[in-house]
Simulated scan of single mutants.
Amino acid sequence: MRRVLAVTLAASVLLIAGMIGRADALEQERTTAVAQLVALNGQYRDAGQRTDYLDGALDHAEQETADRAAVLALRPAFLTEVHALTAALEGAQGRVDTAAHRAAALSAQQTVVAEKENPDTVTAATATLHALTEKVGTEVASWQAAQTSGPGGPAWASSGPDGYARVRAALDLVGGGGVGLYESSSCAGGNAPACANSNGYIKYRADIANWSADRLNWAMAHELAHIYQFRVWGALTSSGAYGTLFGGDPEFLANCMAVVRGYPGSVGCNGDQQAWASAIWVGSVR
């Protein structure tokens, strides 16, 4: 009996020891599992934080990309206005002062080049260029309206503003800045390329706008000479020297007066004729 009891107790001890061993193992496993769970939870939180950061970075990148795309989408319209303003400024040369307009356009262009994210900046710059183009057009139109220099209406017809500007520049060059000028086909019934009116203005035929610079300058100097002749017409026509030196021919005298100004034509004149003709420019008849 004692042996059986001893064996039974020994088995119970072994069983309990085994149970304890299994419990220790389970506790170890639990501890390990808890540690793994804590680690996994920490990793999850880290991953969540990283996900939040990446989500935020992605949202920012997407917004930035959208902004840049919006800016790029508006640039073609801005370039269209640049071309329009460029054409307007070219057309205004010799007519109105465009220095301030050019400076404003350059500033707007630099702003657009620097802008990467805000489409409103490009829109505003585009509107600025459009307004500048309209302003230049208005100023040129005002200049053109002011160019009517004599009876008969507008300053030009078929020669256009560019042709007129070229003839005007030639007349200004030879000293006729204050003399009226307008296009007309009425000079000698259209047979003369230009003519001067006793009322103090000059008319020109449209085709002379295409003459060479030297020929055009001579023509304007010649017609300007007639304007000065008209100013002393009475004394001129009664002058004996005028008849002797020029045969009473105002065209010949006008040629010599142009030579004196440095614009010789096809007909020359001698020193005595030039000396006499020069006095007409200062309102004197010798």
Results as ranks from 00 to 15, higher is better:
residue 43 Q to N: 14
residue 44 Y to S: 14
residue 45 R to V: 15
residue 48 G to W: 08
residue 49 Q to I: 15
residue 52 D to R: 12
residue 52 D to C: 07
residue 53 Y to P: 02
residue 54 L to G: 05
residue 56 G to R: 13
residue 56 G to V: 13
residue 56 G to I: 12
residue 59 D to E: 13
residue 60 H to V: 09
residue 60 H to P: 05
residue 60 H to M: 12
residue 60 H to F: 10
residue 62 E to V: 06
residue 62 E to K: 08
residue 65 T to D: 11
residue 67 D to G: 03
residue 68 R to M: 10
residue 70 A to C: 02
residue 73 A to R: 10
residue 73 A to W: 07
residue 74 L to T: 00
residue 75 R to W: 02
residue 76 P to W: 08
residue 76 P to T: 06
residue 77 A to E: 06
residue 77 A to S: 11
residue 80 T to G: 14
residue 80 T to N: 14
residue 80 T to V: 11
residue 80 T to E: 15
residue 83 H to V: 13
residue 84 A to F: 01
residue 85 L to D: 03
residue 87 A to M: 11
residue 89 L to W: 08
residue 90 E to N: 12
residue 92 A to F: 11
residue 92 A to D: 09
residue 93 Q to W: 13
residue 94 G to P: 02
residue 94 G to H: 07
residue 95 R to A: 15
residue 95 R to L: 14
residue 96 V to K: 07
residue 96 V to A: 05
residue 96 V to H: 00
residue 97 D to C: 10
residue 98 T to S: 04
residue 99 A to L: 10
residue 100 A to N: 08
residue 101 H to A: 14
residue 101 H to I: 12
residue 101 H to M: 12
residue 102 R to F: 10
residue 103 A to L: 14
residue 104 A to G: 06
residue 105 A to K: 04
residue 106 L to I: 09
residue 107 S to P: 02
residue 108 A to M: 04
residue 108 A to K: 01
residue 110 Q to L: 11
residue 110 Q to R: 14
residue 112 V to N: 00
residue 113 V to P: 02
residue 113 V to G: 09
residue 114 A to C: 11
residue 115 E to M: 01
residue 115 E to S: 03
residue 115 E to G: 01
residue 115 E to Q: 01
residue 117 E to C: 05
residue 117 E to I: 02
residue 117 E to A: 14
residue 118 N to L: 01
residue 119 P to F: 05
residue 120 D to M: 08
residue 120 D to P: 06
residue 120 D to C: 04
residue 120 D to R: 06
residue 120 D to E: 12
residue 121 T to S: 02
residue 121 T to I: 07
residue 122 V to I: 01
residue 122 V to L: 06
residue 122 V to A: 00
residue 124 A to C: 06
residue 124 A to Q: 05
residue 124 A to T: 00
residue 126 T to R: 01
residue 128 T to E: 02
residue 128 T to W: 03
residue 129 L to K: 04
residue 131 A to F: 05
residue 132 L to D: 06
residue 133 T to C: 03
residue 134 E to D: 14
residue 134 E to Y: 04
